[in-house]
């Protein structure tokens, strides 16, 4: 998945983890049970409208708030291809890497992109909207190692000598 295109959903600054998944639903047994409530305090309709491969574009400090790992897991379960934000909160960033949710940092696309636009991502190189491109950075090596292993669970399985399929 080096290059992909997806439909954009636009969110604002400081999208916190209580918005991504309210505490009320954290005791539901599985992520699949929870995912319909994703973003419900802000946009109750959003979870049901997001389709596989869509892209979320947001402002600064995406994922601020609690350490709940259900936040990136729900975004991943909604089959969002990646989140593009001006910046991320620290715990959310770590949790996303560990679960294989792709995060991209860019602070320019927000000025021009509209909800429903089709946006193309060339990994580690640029974002493309119509005929305009916006450069993006690649992740540090130690994070790419975890992503390349398929997430932290797979990295630990390898450490413990467990072979897994795929």
């Amino acid at each position: 998945m080096n290059k992909f295109t997806g439909k954009v959903w636009v969110l604002g600054d400081d999208i916190d983890t209580d918005i991504i998944i309210p505490t009320d639903y954290l005791a539901l047994p599985t992520i699949e049970d929870m995912k319909q409530y994703g973003f419900s305090p802000l946009r109750p309709e959003l979870a049901s409208r997001i389709q596989e491969g869509d892209i979320i574009v947001a402002g600064k400090n995406f994922g601020c708030g609690s350490s709940r790992e259900q936040a990136p897991e729900i975004i991943k379960a909604l089959k969002v291809a990646c989140v593009i934000a001006k910046s991320y909160a620290r715990i959310f960033f770590r949790n996303s890497i560990n679960n294989g949710l792709l995060l991209i940092e860019n602070d320019q696309i927000q000025d021009v992109v509209k909800e429903g636009d089709m946006l193309t991502v060339q990994m580690g190189e640029y974002l493309q909207l119509g005929d305009r491109t916006f450069p993006i950075a690649s992740l540090p090596d130690n994070l790419m190692d975890i992503i390349n292993a398929g997430g932290l669970v797979k990295a630990m399985q390898r450490r413990n000598g467990i072979e897994t399929e795929d």
Binding site: I91, N98, N99
Partner: peptide, 15 residues
């Protein structure tokens, strides 16, 4: 002291 997610916690419990 700092907050982490449950996957990282599981890896600390082991390592």
């Amino acid at each position: 002291s700092s907050g982490i997610g449950y996957t990282e916690m599981a890896s600390i419990l082991g390592t």
